[in-house]
Write a protein that binds this DNA or RNA. Sequence first.
DNA 1: CAACTGTACTAGTTCAGATAATACAGACGA
DNA 2: TCGTCTGTATTATCTGAACTAGTACAGTTG
Lengths: 124, 124
Amino acid sequence: MFSIDIRGKTPIYEQLLNRITELISSGAMSENERMPTVREVAKDLGVNPNTVQKAYQMLEQRGLIYSIPAKGSYVAKSDTVINTVKEQALARFRESALNAINSGLEPNVLKTEIEKLEGGTKND
Amino acid sequence: MFSIDIRGKTPIYEQLLNRITELISSGAMSENERMPTVREVAKDLGVNPNTVQKAYQMLEQRGLIYSIPAKGSYVAKSDTVINTVKEQALARFRESALNAINSGLEPNVLKTEIEKLEGGTKND
DNA sequence: CAACTGTACTAGTTCAGATAATACAGACGA
DNA sequence: TCGTCTGTATTATCTGAACTAGTACAGTTG
């Protein structure tokens, strides 16, 4: 389902959060598509359903999915939400870029790095 | 001395670590310059000396400073170490850049952001 | 009604961060 | 030499948050 690393240092719910966010914002999961149930994912990963639910809750809180009690969870994917995701990604980008520059890296080097990444986006 | 945010979510020792690393790698603190003593910084920030020492220890472990027992701590700033700092900063940069691109941000936007940052490095 | 759904609540475990209290050994100036 | 400063080491403790687990509830659906 969602392949994550159970024995990693990063929390399970956070891995799920990131993975699903990527899948949705990249278009791998289409709008109104039904998400696997909390219990399904939990069983699949061998974790507690609440752990999965935590990820789902945060996804809903951020507007990436919507959940209907007793029915299921579905992909929301509104444009405004996607924009929020982008803004946050941009904020993180700015921070790391500033740090890199403050560490003495040349802006040109950073630009070159971006160009290297252009081709290789990791959309599954 | 080192202005940090005591009531932040990021640990005190880590803030110290980052701030001092910036100051050294940016050239704000010159080579062989004497660092304020552990007890000085602790008193100044109102924290426990051990917390400051933890930051100093990690700085020495990374080769950014060198400590002489009973004398003091001094800025090391060897080129190889600075390069390591840069590499790590670059790695973080790549990660956030990749994430930004995966979120649907155009590489050109990222390049523009870098240009915006070029002028305003926050060297105190 | 039975099986599924999301959801809420509580509890327990673990861990990182921070503090505290000392103690030791070397350097250095008075 | 002596007192004071330096970095360093050790151990214990407290706290709070993060994370996960267990369980129960309410609504939907066939």
